[in-house]
Design a binder for these strands. Sequence first.
DNA 1: TTTATTAGTTCGGGACCTAAACTTAAAAGC
DNA 2: GCTTTTAAGTTTAGGTCCCGAACTAATAAA
Lengths: 411, 411
Amino acid sequence: MPHAQPAGAHTVRRHNTGLVLGAIAEAGAVSRATVAAHTGLTKATVSSVVEAMIAADLVAETGQEQRSGRGRRGTELTLSPHGMHGLGVEIGVDYLATCLVDLTGEVRKRRIRGGDNRNRSVASVLGRLTTLTRTALADAQALGVPIGGLGLAVPGLVEPAAGLLRTAPNLGWREVDLDGELRARLDLADRPLLLGNEANFAALAELWSADDLPNFICVSGEIGIGAGIIIDSGLFEGVRGFSGEIGHLAIDPNGPRCSCGAHGCLEQLASVESILRAVGLWSAGAVDPTSVEALLDRLRAAHPATVQAVNEAGHWLGIALAGVVNVLDVPTIILGGRYATLQPWLADPITEELATRVLSATWHPVRVLASTVGPYAAVRGAATAVVRAIRADPASFVPTLVSQLAADSPR
Amino acid sequence: MPHAQPAGAHTVRRHNTGLVLGAIAEAGAVSRATVAAHTGLTKATVSSVVEAMIAADLVAETGQEQRSGRGRRGTELTLSPHGMHGLGVEIGVDYLATCLVDLTGEVRKRRIRGGDNRNRSVASVLGRLTTLTRTALADAQALGVPIGGLGLAVPGLVEPAAGLLRTAPNLGWREVDLDGELRARLDLADRPLLLGNEANFAALAELWSADDLPNFICVSGEIGIGAGIIIDSGLFEGVRGFSGEIGHLAIDPNGPRCSCGAHGCLEQLASVESILRAVGLWSAGAVDPTSVEALLDRLRAAHPATVQAVNEAGHWLGIALAGVVNVLDVPTIILGGRYATLQPWLADPITEELATRVLSATWHPVRVLASTVGPYAAVRGAATAVVRAIRADPASFVPTLVSQLAADSPR
DNA sequence: TTTATTAGTTCGGGACCTAAACTTAAAAGC
DNA sequence: GCTTTTAAGTTTAGGTCCCGAACTAATAAA
């Protein structure tokens, strides 16, 4: 059994700092008194915590509260626009991307660099990624904002704690120490690097962008198919990080052979690549935007063979998702990645399969929605993950928030 | 987003009290000094915490430490045998049971009362349950031990936080306020009542009885089929508590009609009841022990039709479990309930289906083990859940462990 | 102008932790 | 057998942080 840490006065301060910052983040702009009422802390404590956070440039005072009725007006507190930012970095199958977000989760700067990464060596891709990341770090410097940490999204199975990429079938990568490689190339000092699966980060982006959607599965269709599972407003990572990998669920034992070696994997039947192939729009290695545009044009024109192909992919997807929903009992499915734009044509066949295959569907029909974050959700999720980590435990990013002497280890 | 509580000095004490008690529980018998080293707290703090816990009769001094080498011997601390106990109560389909466990998790007293509960009214069953529970409470009184709370295991879907039973298909119950009903019949004062699904409690019992098995699915075969999912040494409850309900996974669309209304539910194809029916050993409402014994006799004698029937059930089970494993990537399956004794005949067909249907099986073969807790795991799990709750946060059960004034709410 | 109300600060008190000195107990060395 | 060494557990002084209450500040209503 993993052992918890001992608690001391620091722990309390640490906890309360996160609590207060969270309250400010959630409200947008609030007075100390409101924060006190909201958190259950006393005004005195809130004042003391806020003072430290203003000094650390996490929080800023932005004028007087506007309110009717008598009594003194409070001073509004907001998340500082010059406070720590989060930098998301993504290795896509056919692009690299970075995304800089502020403490509120707002995107400040995004950079995308296209190009198929499947025909390159690991070193070559990491070299290009380093260059792009350095540019993004320069963006932050130009804006005058510090970076709290990096979030790195990859299309494969990862072991987040170890910073390892186990395997990325669509890149042809195996056993890459991404934490080590990136730290060797970039000066991250002791800033954390949050490694995660692309689909998981995309799901988190949806969670944080939606208003109140604590339970859903987010299916990302790019070249592969991945799913992020959100339960109780948190990511369900599974045991070995293999959980959301529905791309290689065996759906049709007599189906085409997959790059993973098995037959009839979902990815071979319902990925965007397989749809493009089916309708003759597949050109070379990458899912290029023009092909997808062409596909959408045909769909809007109700081109029969195309509609039929997308419909078929939807049925395969529905079968796979029914299994997932049966086990997890999740009430909502979000279509992300390039599936998002296909949602009008995919939702019906998926819903159809869910209705017949999901036991609880009789009482709780499963909703199939399109992503609200749009493309590049994964990088944004990766960047926001950093910001959320800061907001949850600011003291581990800014040690001065807790009395220096004898502060317990950050972790 | 659910809001956390503010922290104060009490929170620290509370946390450390649980930490120290956990360290003592884990080691069995340790000195204060060892606890200090193990938890990271100072000897002074440990002494102070232990003093309070001895006063609360959670911990007892049991003589001198035996150790070679020089230096003073420590006084051994153990969980007090007269400390708070947990009482588990179970409503089975064809029996009622109670189980009293001490702080170490050891069973002190078990009571089982057979009888089909399907042909009785809710009030009648609850009446009988109340009588049995009162007897169990009297047992505790006779032993001179206080009861910290009740754990109630039921064969159906529950909403633990609300204390509600949503539906129990095999009992024919719907929407029963079990928390309310039991509190009305028994004097529980403010003691907690932990409500949970029978399969989930059984899984927890396996978790706590096994040495180091943090990830598995525990499939309980009684009259229905349920599964408890353990991830990272914790119960995965899912969204609406519907997660482990694999009994009604649709396996064979052309299969027999189920009590739930659908066709080809796993329960109709692989439950112990269906096996007994298939071999002509089903008699009246209950799965009676003699029938199961007779089944085992035939299996041991390698009676072809019987072996064939069990084999077939195993294949259906394997198909269902393959879906679960594909989604959750869990490395181990435990056969519990009456499946445990059938494990020698069930494991092979299950493993066979898993090997062909689980993607990751190539690298990580899934193990299929028999329960180590044995029958009545669910009641034991329910009782132990209470004890684990006490051990995790003793102050919420014994308020005197934290300074009285201004103690924050227990929850 | 006074009064009521609300925001935020200051100050005394308390809980609890830590570190270090101190007391107690037992083996090892001479 | 007496002293030394080592380790367990207790006592004490010091510090962090929270809370409650009193206090100051600002603003609308009477």
